[in-house]
Computed example of a mutant assay.
Amino acid sequence: MSVLKTALATPSRMRGIFRYLLEAPKQRENKEKLTRLLSPHELSEGRNKSAEHPMFDAALRESIKCRLLIADNDDIAINFELPEASRHPKMGDKLLPDTLVQLLFASDNEDEEDLGRLIAWYLAQDIYDAPGTWQEVEQRVAEQGVAESLDLKISSNSLFGQVEDWMCYLGFAWGHASDSNKKLVVAEPTAYLRRNLKDLFQGEAKAKLSIRDFLDRLAKKCPLFETGKFREQVEEKIGGRLPNHLSTSTAFALFRLQDDKCIQLIKESDADLFIFPSGDKEAGFSHIIWTGVEL
């Protein structure tokens, strides 16, 4: 079962276990002690005694299944195979969203393909007319006829809430309250892209990449974007994006990053242009420069 369908395995709960282990001696702890510390028995009063720690157990189980953590006899430990920076006590928590993107979507993790396809579907929608509630998502999925073929069934409002929590935590969306005080989610990946610009440009400030090379690197790092595995599965079914055209969500995020002086989009003569849609307008660019600014 994926984190999408394990409602109790929220990002905050998985993060809580990981943060504790970051600071623990040798980044490991006895499972029984870990359970007592993070899910005290006093908070279990009134629960079914056969499942006294359902929230903790679900978060721990999914953390182990995705290889963020490992079970070692009676201990729980941070996976020593993670990159050193991801295990660093002062950096691990900051890097956790990107660590989870790698573990969930870029590591051939079949258990999380439903969440991968669903986020990719969100990012493939027109950001200027994107569904923001469970009812709107179900209607759009039905209109596009992809519920069965892509396993994009959102069967309950609680399941939609799980999608929303994961998209926002990983940096692919943000939520806000509408005028009617109804919470809406906007699938817009600026936060993810901003965090990963340095890595995508291999740490070279002022480096210049063609848009095609940038997208290739991005799709390899996170297959939810254009030409990535999950995005291609979705776009094969829903269509809508022409060759050398970006999705509105990716274009919107890159325009925001340019406004923040993090990148510069340029158009060079005799170079392949990619079309960036923006509302009812569009612009063409061939290359992207990372300015070195990190916000």
Score class of each variant (00 low, 15 high):
L38M: 15
A59C: 10
S86H: 07
L96K: 02
G46S: 11
E81N: 11
S39L: 06
N30P: 06
E45C: 12
I78R: 00
E32P: 06
L103T: 05
D114H: 04
Q102N: 04
N48R: 07
I76E: 01
E42Y: 11
T99G: 02
E32H: 13
K65H: 10
L115K: 03
N30D: 15
R87T: 08
L69Y: 01
R28Y: 12
K94F: 11
L38S: 12
C66R: 00
E112D: 02
R67W: 04
E45M: 12
S39V: 04
A58L: 05
T99L: 04
T35R: 14
P54D: 08
L118K: 01
G46E: 10
E62G: 01
L37A: 09
R28W: 11
N109H: 07
E81G: 05
M91L: 15
A51L: 09
K33M: 07
R36I: 08
H41N: 12
P54A: 10
L118T: 01
R28M: 14
R47T: 09
T35W: 07
N109M: 03
A59L: 06
I78S: 01
E42A: 14
E32G: 13
L118W: 00
E52M: 09
E112H: 02
D72C: 05
P54L: 09
D93L: 15
N109F: 03
S63I: 03
N109E: 03
G46N: 09
S107F: 01
P83E: 08
H53W: 10
L82I: 15
L103M: 08
E84W: 10
D93R: 13
K31D: 12
R117Q: 00
S39Y: 07
K31T: 12
K33H: 07
P54F: 05
K31Y: 08
E42F: 12
S107E: 03
D108E: 14
L69C: 02
G116T: 01
D74A: 14
L34C: 10
R61Q: 11
L104K: 00
F105E: 00
E84V: 14
P54K: 09
K94L: 14
H41K: 15
K49E: 15
L34N: 06
S63W: 02
H41S: 15
L34P: 05
A59H: 05
E110V: 12
G46L: 08
D111G: 04
A58Q: 04
M55Q: 12
S44G: 07
E32F: 13
E29T: 14
K65L: 10
K33D: 05
S50V: 08
S50E: 11
L37Y: 06
K94I: 14
F105G: 02
H41R: 14
S39T: 05
D108T: 08
E42P: 04
D57G: 04
L38W: 11
L68I: 03
L43N: 14
C66P: 02
R61E: 11
E113K: 10
D75Q: 13
R61T: 07
P97Q: 07
L60H: 03
F80D: 13
E45H: 10
I64N: 05
D75K: 09
G92F: 00
L38V: 13
C66V: 10
L103S: 06
F80P: 13
T35H: 06
D98E: 06
F105K: 02
L69K: 01
E52W: 03
L95V: 00
I78V: 11
E84Y: 11
L43T: 15
E42M: 13
E84P: 02
N48G: 02
D74P: 07
F80A: 15
I70T: 12
A59S: 13
L82C: 14
